[in-house]
Design a binder for these strands. Structure first.
Length: 784
DNA sequence: AAATAGCAACTTTTT
DNA sequence: GTTGCTATTT
């Protein structure tokens, strides 16, 4: 007990010791919110609340994991339900599936599945998309679902002026989802919310079952989530929510900031606790955040304060362009690591949109700086993985039409788009799943005999696979790969010279299956595996026990903290984003987004913008964000871009260290010499156009290298993180390394001197010694 | 039907 | 700079 309350402030203790009745914790950034929540759970258990009656809802798996780990420390072995809203709903829905017209093996469509399904619904509803795009319709429907609007309600609402496109598609889409025994992300919430609303006896049962509900990041809940939480807190209003209205950044997906602003109205007997002391940031950083957020009109005023040391002034920096921004920041990080003894993990680079990660990635890589990018393209999005997943989905849920269409002709087996269209329309006409339609292939008129045979062969294959549904995942996946000759298909499809990672990914997927089998020796089911893969988000990829610079969006950064933070691209049209800045609420949300970014920093913060930025190919002039003028400028350090470093100026200042030691436990991919050595490409010259060589010659060289690199490696995005860096920094070559040269064969590096493009290696080959500029020559590193 | 080439449109943020 | 779609070819 002492342990649980030890070291807590008065306000924190107040919150922790509150057990029964509604509780609102208004927690500013860095105010120890997680600490309060976890200690409160432990306290409740200690006071005799059965752990099984507690449910803690978060927005990300990561948040849930962290909470779980910390509760485990305080109250070992007590199993409290913790997880995301979506997972919570997915599990409830599993149990009560039949009540909403599904069966327990229903599938969760991810956003690309949903997109496919939406297109089909639009087609089936016979709507021309000349005036609206499918995306727009999808957004409208998604918003409706988040506001608990059913197809009937939407139709009724638009009756007067004639139904809108969305109103006509919505019922069709929903019906097709039911036929496919599937739900989209929004449905997870919608179904459960409606379930609670329409079945009072069930609502009451669950209310009692989950007597104590905790919700994290309450400012980001939408109406559906609100309704769920509310429905579970009527008989037992032991609802505690934590949040910060100033950090509400999900309005675009239906989050309603009023849920938290009006919480005290909803629960008049609420106890409100304000956590305003900040333990995270320096006063400098906090003042910047505070002054910025004061410009929002719709908010609860809050006094942020801290007893931390003053620290350094916040830096406001203007670069020439995005490359300079990336290089400058990477240099600064490299320098801080080399000179000040910082670790890579102490830094974060944050931005408004994922597209901005590219230049950062480049700069980090050239300096051999370990980093982790949290963004879109990841494992489960890759073609080969999606293919195999689709097989699994179809085996688990034979009605999964999106999966069927993906799988029916991969590997190609003579079933073309036309045949698929026949099957689809047959299915639509009879209101049956497409797999069912394939079994009735003989009844479909107009289909060539040859096509029908191919379809029958597929059905046979499917039936063979489906028998193995209850095998271990490892066996099942291996069986699919074998039976479909999937690897042959990959090898055939892979364009010559493209990366061979596809097959490796398949192996990794099998490994994922093996892991799953191991962690779930008893309760492991295909269903559970699929649910887990469907509900992992990109942000969950963040690892805090790894020593790397973190690179991610402002949204993904919520809840995290770093000693040093760089927010890049603080420009008009980018932050605030041009698509949000026109409405007051949108504009204020953008401001909150910057607020979130600023308050991630513990010791030092830099906000930067550029004079010009290249987006989508062309470079355009950029102007700084209007938010700059809302900051305490007079106490900040303003820096205009210095003239770019000149590499050929012999004693120029910036010199990166060749590498820094990673901790021993570091066994992550790439960034060490081992991975670098496995790559067969020379370095990108780490310099820009300002160079001593004749300009034309240089351009040609650069162009040649670019071409070559593309041909050899195929891709050069975040995805190739998995297969290794696409270029070797000049610093990767060390004395003693073994290298191969096209002309001279194998040789050993005798010495390395100079830096940047001037960095030169002396190499002893069989035919004598030769000197090479590392940035320019074609050298293959054999061992490092 | 399959493979390829070329075009078009788009990118805000995510469970 | 990418991804998905259409037209073209075998």
């Amino acid at each position: 007990m002492d342990v649980i309350l030890q070291g807590l402030t008065e306000a924190q203790t107040d919150a922790v010791t509150h057990i029964d009745g509604p509780l609102l914790i208004l927690a500013g950034p860095g105010s120890g919110k997680t600490r309060v929540v976890t200690h409160r759970i432990a306290y409740m258990i200690n006071q005799g609340v059965p752990p099984s009656q507690i449910a803690a809802l978060t927005f990300t798996n990561k948040a849930a994991d962290e909470m779980r780990a910390r509760v485990e420390q305080l109250a070992p072995g007590k199993s409290v339900w913790m997880g995301t809203f979506h997972r919570f709903c997915a599990q409830l829905l599993r149990r009560y599936a039949t009540m909403v017209g599904l069966t327990e093996n229903y599938s969760i469509y991810d956003s690309s599945d949903a997109k496919q399904a939406m297109k089909r619904a639009i087609e089936a509803a016979d709507i021309s998309t000349s005036h609206t795009s499918p995306e727009q319709i999808a957004t409208t429907i998604s918003n409706a679902k988040n506001r608990l609007v059913t197809p009937e309600m939407m139709l009724a609402a638009t009756k007067r002026s004639g139904p809108t496109m969305a109103a006509r598609v919505y019922p069709v889409y929903q019906q097709q989802l039911l036929t496919a025994n599937a739900v989209d992300f929004d449905d997870l919430l919608l179904h459960v919310a409606l379930l609670l609303k329409e079945h009072p006896e069930l609502r009451q049962e669950l209310d009692t079952r989950f007597r104590y509900i905790l919700v994290d990041e309450y400012q980001d809940t939408n109406l559906a989530q609100y309704a769920i939480v509310r429905g579970l807190s009527i008989n037992h209003p032991n609802l505690s929510v934590t949040g910060d209205p100033d950090q509400s950044i999900y309005g675009w997906r239906g989050a309603d900031i009023n849920n938290i602003l009006d919480f005290e109205k909803d629960y008049p007997s609420v106890k409100t606790v304000r956590l305003e002391q900040n333990y995270r940031s320096t006063p400098n950083i906090l003042r910047a955040a505070d002054q910025l957020i004061r410009h929002n009109r719709r908010r609860k005023n809050k006094e942020l304060y801290t007893h931390n040391d003053e620290g350094d002034a916040v830096t406001l920096r203007i670069y020439e362009n995005g490359y300079e921004e990336a290089d400058g920041i990477a240099d600064e990080i490299a320098n801080a690591i080399a000179v000040e003894g910082f670790r890579p993990r102490d830094f974060a680079i944050l931005y408004r949109m994922n597209a901005l990660s590219r230049s950062i990635e480049h700069s980090m890589r050239r300096r051999n700086l370990p980093y982790q990018i949290i963004n879109g393209l990841e494992f489960y999005q890759r073609k080969e993985i999606k293919d195999l997943l689709a097989y699994l989905h179809l085996i688990n849920n034979p009605k999964h039409d999106v999966a069927l269409q993906r799988v029916i002709n991969t590997p190609t087996r003579g079933i073309g788009t036309k045949t698929i269209a026949y099957l689809r329309s047959h299915a639509d006409r009879h209101g049956i799943p497409m797999l069912e339609a394939t079994r009735q292939v003989d009844q479909i008129e107009g289909l060539a005999k040859r096509s029908a045979t191919a379809v029958k062969r597929f059905v046979e294959l499917y039936d063979r696979l489906a028998i193995k549904a209850t095998a271990t995942l490892e066996d099942l996946i291996r069986y699919i790969v074998e039976e479909t000759r999937y690897e042959d298909h990959l090898l055939k499809t892979v364009v010559d010279g493209q990366d061979s990672s596809a097959v490796a990914n398949v192996d990794e997927f099998i490994t994922a299956g093996v892991e799953f089998d191991r962690y779930h020796p008893d309760d492991g089911s295909l269903e559970l595996f699929l649910e887990q893969t469907a509900l992992v988000a990109d942000t969950d990829a963040f690892e805090d026990n790894t020593d790397r610079v973190t690179v991610m969006t402002l949204h993904a950064a919520k809840g995290l903290e770093f000693p040093r933070v760089f927010v890049i691209g603080v420009e008009d049209g980018l932050l605030p984003h041009s698509r949000s800045k026109d409405t007051d609420s949108g504009f204020e949300e953008e401001r909150r987004l910057l607020f979130v970014g600023i308050t991630r920093a513990k010791e030092r913060l830099q906000l930067s913008c550029c004079k010009s930025r290249t987006m989508r190919g062309e470079s355009r002039p950029a102007i700084s964000s209007p938010f700059f003028n809302e900051l305490p400028l007079d106490e900040m350090r303003r820096v205009e871009s210095e003239l770019e470093r000149n590499w050929f100026d012999e004693d120029s200042q910036d010199d990166y260290p060749e590498s820094w030691d990673l901790p021993e436990e570091e066994d992550d991919e790439d960034f060490d010499s081992e991975a670098a050595a496995s790559v067969k490409e020379t370095a990108d010259p780490p310099f820009d156009e300002s160079c001593q060589l004749p300009e034309e010659e240089l351009k040609e060289l650069v162009a040649k290298k670019k071409k070559k690199k593309k041909a050899v490696l195929g891709l050069k995005t975040a995805a190739d993180l998995m297969s290794g860096p696409s270029s070797i920094p000049v610093t990767a070559y060390r004395e003693g390394n073994l290298v191969r040269h096209g002309e001279h064969g194998e040789g050993r590096i005798v010495s390395v001197t100079g830096r940047g493009p001037k960095r030169t290696a002396t190499i002893r080959f069989d035919d004598g010694e030769h000197r090479f500029r590392l940035a320019f020559c074609e050298l293959e590193l054999i061992d490092g």
